[in-house]
Amino acid sequence: MVAQAGGGSIAVGRQRFLADAAARGLEVQLVERLAAKSLEEAAGILGITPAEIVKSLVVKHKDGSFLFALIPGDRQISWPKLRNLLGVNKLSLPPADVALEATGYERGTITPLGSTTAWPVYADAAIAGRRISMGAGEHGYSAFVDADALTSALGAVVADISDPT
């Protein structure tokens, strides 16, 4: 399936997302949605709570490699917890252009599924056992997926890596 975006260009990010999900046997529901100015607005548009939206954060190691941290929308990444889990003393969120280069996705569309490089995935334990929404590789789209199936398909490490906002 070749999806068309505005102006007739191929929606490559969404295609990569869907192809990777299919290759992993992961069932996803793609939903076209209006642009949102905030997480709360996005949750309202999708008819869910902010906790059900999972942010896919690109995290940079001091050594230059990256990882994905999947964090519920109502929580924030806990740097001390993540550093402790990884046994490192420095991690950071890279600038948008670096995240794009590392994943092939723009901020707001980032997902581990279909990333141009398959970086390790760390998922916050708070997403376990629920249906979540996440980026789908293209602005204007969200994907719904079972969090446990997602973490299993990605071989993600599931741990407590977030704090309340």
Score class of each variant (00 low, 15 high):
L100N: 13
A21K: 07
A128R: 10
P164W: 07
D74T: 10
A118L: 02
G44Q: 01
G114M: 00
A5F: 11
A159G: 11
A149V: 12
P72I: 09
G6H: 13
G129S: 04
A126R: 00
V158A: 07
S78M: 13
R131A: 05
I48Q: 01
G47W: 01
E27N: 07
S56Q: 00
D146P: 12
S142T: 13
P80G: 11
L150Q: 03
L30E: 10
L18A: 10
I161K: 12
H61I: 11
A23F: 07
D20N: 09
D124G: 01
E27R: 09
Q76I: 10
R24Q: 05
L85S: 07
L91Q: 06
G129L: 04
G8H: 08
K90M: 08
A99C: 15
S152T: 15
L100Q: 15
V31G: 02
K90H: 14
S142V: 08
E41C: 00
V58E: 00
D148M: 09
Y105E: 02
G7C: 05
R14M: 12
G137F: 06
V2A: 09
G104K: 05
A23H: 08
D146N: 15
Q4Y: 14
A3K: 15
K90W: 12
S133D: 07
S92L: 01
A51G: 04
L39G: 05
I110K: 07
L57G: 01
G8W: 04
E27I: 06
L113I: 05
V59P: 03
L34I: 12
Q4K: 15
R75H: 11
Q15T: 14
L91F: 06
L100S: 12
K62V: 09
P72L: 06
I48L: 01
L100V: 14
T165F: 15
L18S: 10
H61V: 13
S92N: 00
A22E: 14
I77Q: 09
A5T: 14
Q15M: 13
D20P: 05
T151M: 08
I71H: 06
A153E: 05
F144C: 09
V31Y: 02
I10P: 09
V157M: 12
T103G: 04
E41M: 01
G13Q: 10
G7V: 02
Q15P: 14
R24A: 07
E106M: 13
N89Q: 12
E106N: 14
V54C: 02
K90L: 10
G135W: 02
D124Y: 01
E101H: 12
K81T: 11
R14H: 14
P80Q: 11
V145S: 05
W119F: 04
P80C: 11
A123R: 03
A125D: 11
A51S: 08
D148H: 10
F66H: 12
R83Y: 15
L34D: 15
S162P: 06
K62Y: 04
Y122R: 04
I161R: 09
A43Q: 00
N84K: 14
K60I: 06
P50S: 00
K37L: 13
R14C: 11
R24G: 07
I127P: 01
A35N: 06
G13N: 10
L91W: 09
A123I: 03
V88R: 04
V12Q: 12
H61Q: 15
H139F: 08
V28P: 03
L91D: 06
A21S: 08
V145Y: 03
A102I: 13
G44V: 02
A3W: 15
R107K: 12
G13L: 10
A156F: 09
R75F: 10
A51C: 04
A42Y: 00
I45G: 05
A21G: 02
R83N: 14
